[in-house]
C-alpha cells in the first residue's frame, strides 16, 4: 500500500546570520506496509519517528527518498494528484485534544470532510448523515450521545475515537497513529488499540503505528513488523514477535527492559538492562554506532565503524548482536 525508500529528513535552522545548523532527523530508512498490514516504529521521543509519520501524511516534505502510495511515486505526480494521494494517508495525533477544534462540535468536525467527499461522489445530504453515523458507530461511539458535544465534554478515549472517526470519513488506505494512546488513561488505552486492530481487519486499512510502548505495538500489529528507530536510523527490524522475543540489538533490549514488570505475576528477564543515561542529541558523534554512548556492550570498533543492517527477515545493525533475555516472564501459576 505504501512503500518508502531511503527516506531522509534534514532540518536546517539559522543559528546566526552566517551560520546554519542542520539536524538529521531521519537518516535514510526504507520500509513498506501492505494493505491491511502493520508496521510499528518503536523508539524514544526525539528519535525521528514522528517526523516519518508527518512526512507520510504529507504534512512535511522529505529531504530525500522515494514515497510510493498505492504504487504511485508522490514526487512524480501533479500537486493535485499528490494531495489526493496523501489524503488516503491519515495521521492520528498523539493528543486528541489538540487534534479536535475546541470551538466546533463533533458533528461539525465530521460533516466538513464528509461534505467534500459527498461532492466528489455526487451524493446528497442523507448520505452525509448516514456516513457520519456509520463512522461514529465504527469507532464504538453512540452517534446520538456524542454528535452535539464539544471536545472538552468527552473523555480522552472518546476524543481519540472521534479523531479516528474523522480520519475514516475520507476513506483512508493508511492510518499513521503517532503515539495515539499515550495521552489516554491506561485503563482506556486498550479499547483504542483494539479499535485500530479492528480497522485493519475489517476495513483492510494499513497501519503505521508509532510508539514508545512495545506492548501496544505488539497488541495492534502482532502479525506485522517492528522497526526500532534510534536517532533517525533503523537499528533492528523484523516480525513483531521475533523482535520482541529474540531482540538482538542492545537498544531494542533496553526498550524491552523498560516495559514495567508486574510483580507477583511476572519475573524480570535475567538480562534486563535499563540505561540511565539520556539520549545524546548533539551531532558531534557521527562516526561509529549512534548508540555507543549508552551501550553497555560497546567496544572500540563501535566507536570507529558504523554497523550496517544485516540479516535475513530479522535485521539488526550491531557489531555484537546477540539474543539476550530481557523480556519479563510470566510466573507459572501455583
Amino acid at each position: 500500500m505504501i512503500e518508502v525508500e531511503n527516506l531522509t529528513k534534514v532540518y536546517s535552522s539559522k543559528s546566526g546570520i552566517f551560520e546554519r545548523q542542520s539536524v538529521r532527523a531521519v537518516r535514510g530508512i526504507s520500509f513498506h506496509i501492505p494493505a491491511g498490514g502493520a508496521v510499528s516504529f518503536i523508539g524514544e521521543s526525539g528519535c525521528g519517528k514522528t517526523t516519518v509519520g508527518r512526512i507520510l501524511a504529507g504534512l512535511e516534505s522529505a529531504s530525500e527518498g522515494v514515497i510510493r502510495i498505492g504504487g504511485q511515486d508522490v514526487s512524480r505526480v501533479s500537486s493535485k494528484e499528490r494531495q489526493a494521494l496523501f489524503r488516503t494517508v491519515q495521521l492520528i495525533h498523539q493528543d486528541p485534544y489538540q487534534a479536535l477544534n475546541p470551538a466546533r462540535s463533533v458533528g461539525q468536525s465530521l460533516l466538513d470532510p464528509l461534505k467534500v467527499m459527498a461532492k466528489t461522489k455526487r451524493v446528497g445530504d442523507s448520505w452525509i448523515r448516514d456516513r457520519a453515523n456509520e463512522v461514529l458507530t465504527m469507532v464504538g461511539l453512540d452517534p446520538n450521545s456524542v454528535i452535539h458535544k464539544y471536545p472538552h465534554m468527552l473523555s480522552g478515549g472518546q476524543r481519540q475515537r472521534i479523531v479516528i472517526a474523522r480520519a475514516l470519513t475520507v476513506e483512508p488506505h493508511v492510518l499513521v497513529a503517532d503515539e495515539a494512546v499515550s495521552m489516554i488513561d491506561v485503563s482506556l488505552r486498550l479499547g483504542v488499540l483494539r479499535l485500530l486492530r479492528n480497522l485493519r481487519e475489517k476495513l483492510n486499512i494499513a497501519l503505521l503505528f508509532i510508539t514508545h510502548d512495545v506492548a501496544a505495538a505488539r497488541y495492534v500489529g502482532r502479525d506485522g513488523e517492528v522497526h526500532v528507530i534510534y536517532r533517525g536510523l533503523i537499528l533492528e527490524k523484523g516480525e513483531t514477535d521475533d523482535v520482541i522475543q529474540h531482540p538482538q540489538h542492545p537498544y531494542t533490549q533496553a526498550l524491552l527492559s523498560a516495559v514495567p514488570v508486574l510483580k507477583g505475576l511476572e519475573i524480570p528477564g535475567p538480562d534486563r538492562y535499563i540505561p540511565l543515561k539520556e539520549m545524546e542529541t548533539r551531532e558531534d558523534v557521527e562516526t561509529g554506532c549512534l548508540f555507543v554512548s549508552r551501550c553497555p556492550f560497546a567496544r572500540d570498533i563501535c566507536r570507529e565503524k558504523s554497523p550496517l543492517l544485516t540479516g535475513e527477515g530479522h535485521e539488526m545493525a550491531c557489531h555484537f548482536a546477540q539474543v539476550r533475555n530481557v523480556v519479563a516472564m510470566p510466573v507459572v501459576a501455583d
Binding site: 448523515r129 458507530t137 469507532v139
Partner: peptide
C-alpha cells in the same frame, strides 16, 4: 462496510436525531 463496534459500546445504527 458495517463494522461490529467494540463490545463496550453497543452499535447504535440510528439516524442522528
Amino acid at each position: 462496510m458495517a463494522l461490529p463496534a467494540s463490545k463496550l459500546d453497543p452499535p447504535v445504527n440510528q439516524l442522528v436525531v
